[in-house]
Design a protein around this nucleic acid. Structure first.
Lengths: 164, 164
DNA sequence: GGGGAATTCATGGGCGTCAATGGAATCTCA
DNA sequence: TGAGATTCCATTGACGCCCATGAATTCCCC
């Protein structure tokens, strides 16, 4: 897989060892390195049992959305609690591994395997079987969406088979 | 945990010992150190049973928000009384611990555990179970807010499509 | 073109360091 | 002088760092 990428692409599944360590997929490490964030910024995926992660670019997106609120407004309180309070900054060791906190493990329902799903400026962390189910659903929904759009002759949704 | 951060992020819960001492989470100490404030600036959270805390940046934000009011207005009186009058500056010992005043303990309803919630330029001090409830509420309200704004971006970022 | 060497990565284990916590010792002010 | 507070140590458990293994891939040279 060619490097030189500044976005998280593709899906990888790695093992959590006895000490709780997981290797972050090398291509993702490359992106993070390039991004410059000294670690891994993690934030819960609001409507899925998963966790979003990334570097500066991801973090800035969150901060930016907060910045439009008055620092002492109730909205800021709520958002900063939900977004920053629930976020975590994980460190990445010299071997490219990290240790997920209990909170993150619980949130994503992780046991001994983790699936990393590239999503451009961020990636997601899933429990493998849960992700498989989600992907199934997503795929069928896209299929259905295409059918709807196709009926109107739209070129909006590109065709392509299921996936990995 | 990767340092080099200039904002309070994530949530930590520490124990108050028999003498009233609590360790301030190391990452937060790091931020305070960087901020330069010699201690911990504490001010009551206006609409919650909790306490806001931070360094220079936090204190400046309070002043800034006060400055938007006419210094002789009743609003100014009320706010400055609530924000500045009720503020306290706590010291941090060599081991990174502080001792909360009775006022603060009462205001947040603290007993033997404290939860520190990062919120960017400040963090909040909560009694753990009380925070758990608030977090629930915050999360669901953000979810609904996000739905209302119809924002895309599974980053959980409302508006501004935190995308590429 | 093929076989082997060198690389890249994921993974495991041992160990030193640091943070959180508890307790003792010292200090201070009424 | 005594209660509360501040500084100094000690313990323990978590985390970061280094090295080893092994599999899969790439590179290179004959």
């Amino acid at each position: 897989m060619a490097g030189r990428m500044d976005e998280f692409v593709s899906t990888f599944t790695n093992r959590i060892d006895g000490k709780g360590r997981v290797s972050i997929p090398a291509p993702f490490r490359e992106v993070l390195m390039r991004d410059g964030f000294p670690g891994l910024y993690c934030s819960p995926t609001l409507d899925q049992k998963a966790v979003d992660a990334g570097g500066n670019r991801f973090r800035d997106a969150i901060r930016q959305s907060l910045s439009q609120f008055d620092p002492f407004s109730e909205d800021y309180e709520l958002l900063s609690t939900a977004l920053m309070g629930e976020s975590e900054i994980l460190s990445i060791d010299k071997d490219g591994r990290t240790v997920f906190s209990d909170t993150i493990r619980a949130r994503a329902g992780l046991t001994d395997l983790v699936t990393f799903v590239g999503q451009g400026f961020k990636f997601q962390i899933w429990e493998p079987s849960r992700f498989a189910a989600y992907r199934e659903e997503a795929t069928s929904r896209v299929r259905e969406l295409r059918k709807r759009l196709g009926a109107r002759g739209s070129a909006g949704v590109p065709s392509q088979g299921g996936g990995t």
